[in-house]
Design a protein around this nucleic acid. Sequence first.
DNA 1: ACCCTTGCCGAAACCGGTTTCGGAAATCAG
DNA 2: CTGATTTCCGAAACCGGTTTCGGCAAGGGT
Lengths: 371, 371
Amino acid sequence: MTAGMKPKPVSSAGARRTTISDVANALGMAKGTVSRALNGYSDISEGTRLRVQNMARQMDYRPLSHAQAIRTGRVRSLGLVLQTGEYDGHSPMLADFLAGIAHEVGTQGWTLTVGAATTMQDTLATLKSLSEERKADGFIIPRTYTNDPRVDLLRRLEIPFVLYGRTQDPQDCAWYDIHGGEAMSDAVARLVSFGHRRIAFINGGVEYYYSRLRLAGYYAGLDQEGMTRESALLRQGAVTEEQGEAAALELLHQDSPPTAIICAVDRAALGVFRALRRFGLTAGQEVSVIGYDGIAEGAFARPQLTTFAVDTYKAGNRLAHLLIARLLGSPVEGLRETDVAALVARDSDGPAKVTSEELAVILRQNSTQNT
Amino acid sequence: MTAGMKPKPVSSAGARRTTISDVANALGMAKGTVSRALNGYSDISEGTRLRVQNMARQMDYRPLSHAQAIRTGRVRSLGLVLQTGEYDGHSPMLADFLAGIAHEVGTQGWTLTVGAATTMQDTLATLKSLSEERKADGFIIPRTYTNDPRVDLLRRLEIPFVLYGRTQDPQDCAWYDIHGGEAMSDAVARLVSFGHRRIAFINGGVEYYYSRLRLAGYYAGLDQEGMTRESALLRQGAVTEEQGEAAALELLHQDSPPTAIICAVDRAALGVFRALRRFGLTAGQEVSVIGYDGIAEGAFARPQLTTFAVDTYKAGNRLAHLLIARLLGSPVEGLRETDVAALVARDSDGPAKVTSEELAVILRQNSTQNT
DNA sequence: ACCCTTGCCGAAACCGGTTTCGGAAATCAG
DNA sequence: CTGATTTCCGAAACCGGTTTCGGCAAGGGT
């Protein structure tokens, strides 16, 4: 094998892929040398490194990840375990999320491996087996809990991961998160500027860490405006339309009903629409409603939902990026990103047209007709 | 190494996985023998096969798929490339679909690798690279077109695949499909039995093969009832709420409006609701509406949508099953399953309360107020 | 008793990479 | 000019499996 061999011809019909050996003896070198040159070992001279890289590019050589994995143990794949229980209204964003991950992963030459589970127990087992079988080098953990058993598991197993959202104990954690709290306090400020004085908050699932942050944001917003916190204006654990509707009904049936309702989750906000409709009211008129998420249905609802939209595609994208960085050795402290949700002002909120007292009268009048 | 060695102790802290060599010399055999015993070679006696299998189970030996892949070229992974373009209303089912695939795949010891693309061009490139890099042994092709370039590509590359839905040329194709056509003709029959005489059909995207089948089903239903086909009662290409709403408005603005509307897609049916609401009408009263898909929103809509529900989880499940079978060597002809959609009778359809003529009058009256 | 199958398994090559090890050539110190 | 380092690369081992090949022993036919 002389060094002057010409690169292999354009792949004919039954062409085998070019292997590292092909590259090696096209260059007249040992395959070990080619490997080290390609992987940036320091004992390779700059000259040969270049020659190898050029030849590899010319011959369109791409190492097979599973062939590398046998020695390195790394398969260049990110894992994602979906927990699909009851309908929780979050699935609409899934497609974008996956697209975001898959795109980033694809351009880096990595892969996305997805598993599914129904219970947390099941999720943990799936995580364990996927990593034991080395189907994934690390995991993206979506929808983090305040106290997340998945985090505990992966920490114990020393398997890299990155969170979508944060968790109570940040040790060993990389994450991408949206400032949901900030959005909530912005919502309060916006509603106050519209003249609202009684602003309620319908929070999401209490087990998720995000609901803590959003509640804190709501409180911060109240504080900033010099308003007092009232438990009568707070409802927790609404993530579906029904739950949102039920929570809104509770809020509206009080003596001093809120003239504005902030929801931690868009779908709950759509439920609030329904509750209002029961009284013959429409969001954005007598009562303002602001949501959070930016689901597509919000734009199609009547009235169109004002919301703080999160870019789910981008989230997936950044998460993949961060996890790959972590797997490549970046220290976890540098892999923590937060972003802001973008206010999408539509029709479901606006200037206060009635006071709480006036609203109470209207509600009493109309409640006799319905329900 | 004697044959009587005891199995390795329960994995301690830094325990390596058990390899095939571990099993081999626990049994005092050559590793090649173990491999052949486990893979059902015929030159292994029944006795040793049993001994090997037992020992493997005892030692919890599971071969690493990427280690096998290096020789076999098969990684035991199914590929799925999502095409995420504009919001087409189909994403809600995605979570269930993935769960169905992932579950089947998981229990068989396989994996699901997902990619994403925005355009068809992109999808084809992704399919090609995923298979070239051997990230997937075969593909699940969702949302089949009448004439599907993905099928052409995979056929040409001789890569196994299975379709969710059918396509024009069945050569080399395995599939799982729902009898959408049957559902549509059932819908016609149901509406006729309710006394409806003018029944319209709002079809889905014309490029998909399913819309041909559903249209044919609608026609078959009409034929069976001795009704004539009228192009005035047919609209095509509605997959979103807006498109459904627009199509319904067109249908209702005619001189002889339909008293019942069948939609090939639930989301379009929800759009029809909105169109009716514009006229102060509600589905299930003056006009009956029947959808197809069984999306969760249908149950939450007011009125609740009568629809033919497809079990998306099951679809994913069966598709994974079929593809794995195909990859294991089953002839493609035996890998074609069809299932039926289940009628979920709710509130959006019912006995005809007005004739088309009466409806026309109502619509004319109300159209002056709205729009 | 002998040859020929057949059944069954060990040994070794192989898949496509990575990593270790050792030595030749080049560079440096004195 | 010599000896000691460095620099750089070839050779070979290795990763965890699969597959080929050949041979020993048991069984069958005559």
